[in-house]
Nucleic acid binder design. Structure first.
Lengths: 241, 241
DNA sequence: TCGCGCATTTAATGTGCATTAGAACATCTG
DNA sequence: CAGATGTTCTAATGCACATTAAATGCGCGA
């Protein structure tokens, strides 16, 4: 009967760039990310999301067909954006950057994005273990794609013989990601600067991963540029496995 | 490890050691930890807890006055036990163990308890950021007490001049705990042995925290080179906060 | 100015779930 | 075996919240 539903889709829909409608949809997503990150999957009430987004709960159904669909999008787009951000920063590095320097950059951009920019990332991180099967699939896919970025970083370190031989690559990668992700749980701008945290994380990760011989701080240069725009010289072998 | 709780809220509380009643109460707590760790705070239904504990939901009210009280106990007792476990392992160490060796032991016992023994710990970890104020207090208190154990471990490393100078002690400590805690999110016994993970974590943490010069493996009685550090019993009061 | 589709609102509807009431069952004491 | 006390059940009660229905406001092209 009622078939006046806009062919809602992902973040695309060509013509609708800065449409008011598109902006409202975005506001709802942002609100959902905010609520989801502090209340958890089951605790995320549409009325709360609506309040943050400054509209009434039923209005959400004009943009999303269900609560789960809204949450699903927050979850996967959170990591998708994180991956995009980190990848851009890596791409901005000079072609000859060492594997450890690349890891440094990944550590910094991961932390910056997670703690400075995005509620989405914390929402995804905190609820990864709680979302039901239905929603999980797309999230897992994106999480794996982001994982691939790190898998490649670590693999490069192995290939360059700078990864500590006692480390299992997979475990090491997950432990590092855990250290970074967990920062969302405790870091508070009032108890220590983000730069301070980043410095510590870089040191910890670099000397933790690298073989003793190749320890010392390498080139502290290449202070990750802020603009994700410049598509510089990309790294060769993409998509590792 | 074995530490029967002094029934706090139940009915009367005589010297109930292995009482059937006490065991039922424990079963409910265990079930709640199990559900809480995978469904999250808001998603934890009393009917699910009851099902796991093999009884009907209203029976829970005989032992706990509300859902929140049950969850609160799971949350704080989770870390309380973790702390007890780690502390015991540390206490079993010979008096002369180096600060890095002590950290090694803490890493191992933390991971073992979290991944092998206890649903409580994962429940606490995953829900730390989602529980409402009301419940939070006691949890935070216990979390801080456990944090003190690590604060002391790291401080000892500083005193012994083995902590990498570029590291902010607080940030480093939280990053390490994050790496460990996060393991609950991804580690699966079928994709890699726990021993393997522990080995990697120890290596990563040890070489990540320590100053380059002091790399090698465990070594008994290898006190700091030139430090007037209080080499006496490490058991000084750490709390003070 | 009218009219028409998009956007959002107010007012139901229904279900799921914590919590309560009070009966039934079990176990222990004499 | 009585009956007292401890334990768990079945059957309400009531609220909170996702979702639906239907009405209203809004902007814009002729």
């Amino acid at each position: 009967m009622v078939d006046r539903k806009p062919a809602l889709a992902g973040p695309d829909l060509p013509g609708t760039a800065g449409t008011k409608s598109a902006r409202t949809r975005q506001r709802i997503l942002d609100a959902a990310a905010h609520v989801l990150s502090r209340r958890g999957y089951a605790g995320t009430r549409l009325t709360d999301v609506a309040e943050v987004a400054q509209l009434q709960a039923p209005a959400i159904y004009y943009y999303f067909s269900s609560r789960d669909e809204l949450i699903e999008e927050v979850m996967w787009s959170g990591i998708a954006h994180m991956r995009e951000h980190v990848r851009a920063q890596l791409a901005a590095l000079p072609a000859g950057a060492s594997s450890l320097d690349r890891i440094d950059v990944a550590v910094e951009s991961h932390l910056r994005y997670q703690l400075e920019i995005s509620d989405y990332t914390t929402a995804a991180i905190r609820n990864a273990g709680q979302i039901p099967e239905q929603i999980r699939l797309r999230y897992v896919t994106e999480a794996n794609r982001y994982g691939d970025v790190w898998r490649e970083l670590v693999q490069d370190a192995v290939d360059d013989r700078v990864l500590h031989p006692d480390l299992d690559p997979r475990a090491a990668r997950m432990l590092v990601l855990g250290a970074l992700n967990w920062a969302a749980e405790w870091w508070n701008p009032r108890r220590g600067s983000l730069d301070q945290l980043i410095r510590t994380a870089k040191t910890l990760v670099r000397s933790g991963l690298s073989t003793g011989s190749e320890a010392g701080e390498a080139s502290p240069a290449a202070p990750a540029p802020d603009t994700p725009a410049p598509a510089g010289p990309r790294r060769a072998g993409a998509a590792a496995r």
